[in-house]
Design a binder for these strands. Structure first.
Lengths: 232, 232
DNA sequence: ACAAAAGTGTTGAGAGTACACCCATGC
DNA sequence: GCATGGGTGTACTCTCAACACTTTTGT
């Protein structure tokens, strides 16, 4: 970057961000997509995203995009990969930095502005045709999520502040796409020392009430994960 | 990226790549730096890099940068992170995609063009002051390398085609910054099934000759690692 | 009493870790 | 014969995986 390009010709790029926003709803892993109203790919579904502003960092731009679309308190946001094929956008020379993020479905509400823009959740297993190279980006995000859930605590971001161990297990199962042994799962989670049992229980349904847990030690998490957890 | 920016103002960026090129020489982990001849940071050391050309992908640009500076057959190259703080380059609005790469010292020769440009290897423990945010980029690359060496085979890229187990162990020790137990290391490496013992031995020095190994199953590697291994 | 989910322990296999001595070669 | 690095095995601990029954609640 120090030196002008190899052949003296370098070009201006538009820098953009795209966000793969995951949630779990009804036992299914979903991503948020918005409908495009302008060409190219008019009418197609695309990842939420936008241009990076003049005076903002790329990370900030990704956060702003999320803020515009959600009203969630904390969001786990992590840079995923940068896509810069020369013709990935037919308008030319758009380089996009992809992020992925996780939100808890109950806390999540689309902002009014965004409901108008036709945003919708889609099951990752049944995505519509996507604009640009967005299908590839989603695939990449999913891969990263599946790998990171094994050695970090990203999975917790999908749950409300208080949750049962079974709910936690369901998130893991949905993301990994396979069932897990209840006893092994609980033992492992508990001995990680990052869960704090509360005295509360689920409102009695027609079964035995389940103990509610919270996620302890946010400090550890901040350190462990390279992502950006920001209160806005 | 689908939609013009939030406030209708978006700006053109220069897209650049920077490469953190590692090698091991004399038992020390080193990175390649080039001296800057133009402002800003004139006279300072910086990571090799350059602008992304009009008709090339970002990945290609990183490869090209490496090609210009080295004459190595295969290079392990992996995208690291994208840095886009608004004022990271005083000239303004330069977004850089950082990569890291590993080369084997013996195969490596600086190209003539690059010797002229004053490129030099520096021990990662004793870096000079670096231009821009390059110190941070190196730090980040080092962190990634240390973490990836534990579950991938990146370490092999630092060695010649044939190598002894002790040489392999030394690479790991240098990268991790700690000694490893010889017996455990050898057992683990051999039972991974990715090493193939040859019938050759090191030229007899003044000790017992050591068996030479090669790295088998390039297919496995391709799959395991998300990086780009390209013959040029 | 029954349906439905919560909760709980043990065993065996494999991986990681700690640890010390003999071997082949050149001089 | 000695200096130098090459090469080898065992015992302990810990983690992971497999596996089934009892408890609490509402109806």
């Amino acid at each position: 970057m120090a030196i002008p390009s190899h052949n003296g010709r370098f070009s201006a790029y538009i820098a953009a961000v795209d966000v793969v926003l995951f949630t779990i709803q009804g036992g299914t892993l979903k991503v948020l997509l918005v409908k495009r109203h302008q060409p190219p790919y008019r009418g197609a579904w695309a990842l939420p995203g936008g241009m990076v502003g003049e005076e903002e960092s790329v990370d900030k731009a990704a956060l702003r995009e999320l803020q515009e679309k959600t009203n969630v308190d904390h969001i786990y946001l992590e840079q995923l990969y940068t896509f810069g094929e020369p013709h990935r956008d037919p308008r030319g020379r758009v380089i996009t930095v992809a992020y992925y993020a996780l939100v808890n479905w109950q806390q999540f509400r689309l902002t009014a502005r965004h409901r108008a823009a036709e945003a919708n959740w889609f099951a990752v297993k049944r995505l519509p045709a996507l604009a640009f190279d967005h299908a590839r980006i989603v695939e990449y995000a999913l891969e990263r999520l599946r790998s990171k859930i094994n050695y970090t605590t990203v999975g917790f971001q999908l749950l409300p502040r208080q949750f049962t161990l079974t709910e936690l297990q369901r998130s893991y199962e949905v993301i990994l796409g396979q069932g897990l042994d209840k006893r092994n799962f609980r033992r492992k989670m508990l001995q990680l020392g990052i869960l704090k049992g509360t005295r509360d229980f689920t409102a009695t349904g027609r079964q035995r009430p389940a103990r509610l847990y919270t996620f302890a030690e946010p400090k550890v998490v901040k350190l462990q994960e390279k992502g950006i957890i920001v209160p806005f």
